[in-house]
Amino acid sequence: MAFTEKAVVFLLMMMAAFHVSQAAVHKVGDSSGWTIIGNIDYKKWAATKNFQVGDSIIFEYNAKFHNVMRVTHAMYKSCNASSPLTTMTTGNDTIKITNYGHHFFLCGIPGHCQAGQKVDINVVKVSAAAAPTPTSAMASPVPPANVPAPSPNVASPFIVAKGGVGVLTLAIALVAFLTLSTHA
């Protein structure tokens, strides 16, 4: 196999590895889940995450006592649950992030949002070259002009694969490339 062909095969494997390893699953509230018990700071929780298009967020909660409502920014700020964009009530709701921007959720049970059961999932666009193209299935209810500027990202600009599967796939791609280059 010529070097050019090997390079193309290697690049295709690397692109596949990145695509496989890109999506992450975020359980809202981590082990505590979606609740008002334990004074969980969902704002602080969300600030520790790096949400990306393709990721999934899971709301786990007792459906007898809670729900999940997707709302506009104004409704989020005022804890207004009167006309949500969507309402989920299963107790185990998964939402796939399909676009950038802020996605606002709250519990519509009276008093729960006021007690802190609300979360702003902010999906920041990393760069035009590295980011996948978003779809409009989960359009942000806030126009970009009303969204505060994101905090500077202190992370390295190098694309890092998430999870063991991504690292394993990258390692396999590297071994395949080295094997192809030594058997030419």
Rank of each mutant, 00 (worst) to 15 (best):
K125Y: 01
D55E: 03
Q114M: 10
P150M: 11
G164Y: 05
K64T: 00
T86H: 11
Y76V: 04
A129T: 10
V123P: 06
P134R: 01
K162P: 00
P141H: 07
I121K: 00
I97E: 00
I58Y: 11
G164Q: 08
A130N: 10
H66G: 07
A115M: 11
F158E: 09
S78C: 07
Q117P: 01
V160N: 06
P132L: 03
T89Q: 14
N92V: 06
F65Q: 07
V123M: 05
P150D: 03
F105A: 11
N122L: 09
S156R: 12
A145L: 00
T72H: 03
L85P: 14
Y61C: 09
I159A: 14
V154A: 11
I58Q: 13
V142G: 09
Y76N: 00
K125H: 11
V119Q: 04
K162M: 02
N146Y: 07
K64D: 14
K162H: 01
N99W: 06
S156F: 03
Y61G: 09
P134Q: 14
V154G: 13
A149N: 11
I97C: 12
G54Q: 09
P148N: 11
C107K: 03
T90V: 10
T87W: 12
I97T: 10
G101K: 01
A139I: 12
P110F: 07
S56M: 13
T89L: 08
I109K: 14
E60P: 12
L106T: 07
S140P: 04
I95V: 15
N62M: 08
F158I: 15
L85I: 15
V123D: 01
A155D: 09
Q117M: 15
A139V: 11
N80E: 05
T72N: 09
G108R: 02
K118F: 04
A74E: 06
M88L: 13
I109F: 12
V124P: 04
I57W: 01
A131W: 02
N153L: 04
P84V: 01
T98P: 00
C107Q: 11
P141Y: 03
F158A: 13
Y76C: 00
P134N: 06
K77E: 12
V68D: 03
C107M: 03
I58D: 13
G54N: 04
I97H: 02
G166R: 05
P110R: 07
T94Y: 05
K118A: 12
H66K: 08
G108Y: 02
A149P: 11
G163E: 00
M138A: 07
A139H: 10
A81R: 01
C79N: 15
I121Q: 03
P132N: 10
I109N: 04
A128M: 01
F158R: 07
K125E: 08
T135D: 15
V68W: 04
F105M: 08
T133K: 14
A155I: 06
T94R: 05
M138Y: 01
G101T: 00
K118E: 04
P141D: 11
A131P: 05
